[in-house]
Design a protein around this nucleic acid. Sequence first.
DNA 1: AAATAAATCCCCCTAAAAGGGGTATAATTT
DNA 2: AAATTATACCCCTTTTAGGGGGATTTATTT
Lengths: 209, 209
Amino acid sequence: MTSTKFRIVIIEDDHTLRDGYAYLINNSPSSVVVASYCSFDHAKNNLSKDRPDVILLDIQLPGTNGIDALPALKKLLPDTYVIVLTVYESEKTILHALANGANGYFTKNNPFPKIIDAIQEVTQGGGPMSINVARTVIMSFQRNQNSPLTKRETEVLILRSQGKDRSQIAEELFIETETVKTHIKNIYSKLNVNSRADSIRVARENKFI
Amino acid sequence: MTSTKFRIVIIEDDHTLRDGYAYLINNSPSSVVVASYCSFDHAKNNLSKDRPDVILLDIQLPGTNGIDALPALKKLLPDTYVIVLTVYESEKTILHALANGANGYFTKNNPFPKIIDAIQEVTQGGGPMSINVARTVIMSFQRNQNSPLTKRETEVLILRSQGKDRSQIAEELFIETETVKTHIKNIYSKLNVNSRADSIRVARENKFI
DNA sequence: AAATAAATCCCCCTAAAAGGGGTATAATTT
DNA sequence: AAATTATACCCCTTTTAGGGGGATTTATTT
């Protein structure tokens, strides 16, 4: 009979980690490592014939890094799930990876055997994440409680960040365009900026909006 | 000696579920239910004396719903973790809850005993989520692959969504402002809109940006 | 009761931006 | 060969943005 094991490809430049994951996966009943590569550049020409169900991808790779490899992987193998395995846990890296198509994200300090569960989970359409990643992701949705902006100013700036102009904002908030203007002036003063783009940037960077 | 168990409050209008969770929690070694309420409106005046470490919150509640209760809860008890427990798994509801300060999010079809792990996890600063929620959250970061916009148009629209004007965009992309204008015209035409705000709205709704 | 903060509204001004209409060329990709 | 993409320019009018100024009302807090 044909094996129904999940086909796994590992792209990771650290030999020890690569062998560790491979050992674990090959000793699990549900998965088998069909190939390992030390960089995306080495992997890309073989992936089509490897036909992986799941790719374990490191971020810090020689040549093309994992973040940049993701869109290419997704284009090459649209139905393959990609789980990122990395030491990076900065919000920027995590969100970037997810935006680029990562289906799961684990930091390497995560208990090793969890990767087996993660493979199961991702093939069932889940989005496996380690605890600290989940925290980062959740925190990325949350606003800063110490915003200098008032409730109304925050509302105005959010509408502004949706590309709306003064009159559209005025209409939506049932106030005059002149009032909107005043709010904007106060926002600029509080954020120490003097343009729409800067106000949105500063507010986003600080999660005021 | 003083108990070090985590103090849990349940806000849930379904008696059966409430009792089920309470039973599980009270039989775990690490947590104890200090109070249960059938609505946020009933809960709010008692929460200060309940001093919960974790609140399990339903979304569909009589009176103030869970989404709206979240900011109020966070204001009242800034150091209390809130785990949302609900049948709602629409992207909108989930992201709304997270934006409003939820520290975890579980749908009720999740294995019941997982809530004990979730309480542990959230108190350790994690962001526990059920599989389908994690999937939704991860998907919320991902772009639609079927965008009608070209790469360049997408770039332009993203910069636009950052509040940048034509000249700022031109500078950033090393092209002329007139070229930016052409891209914008083509974007409008493809998205069938004729304003900045509408183009950003449509593109976001469809995850083109 | 007084002070502060927040939200509302109005005036002036100028430069820039937005949006709609065209057209055109070089490079890619199909 | 044909289509797509990215680039750039022209015309035009209306609107917006940002900087100045000042004022009123309503909450909230002290």
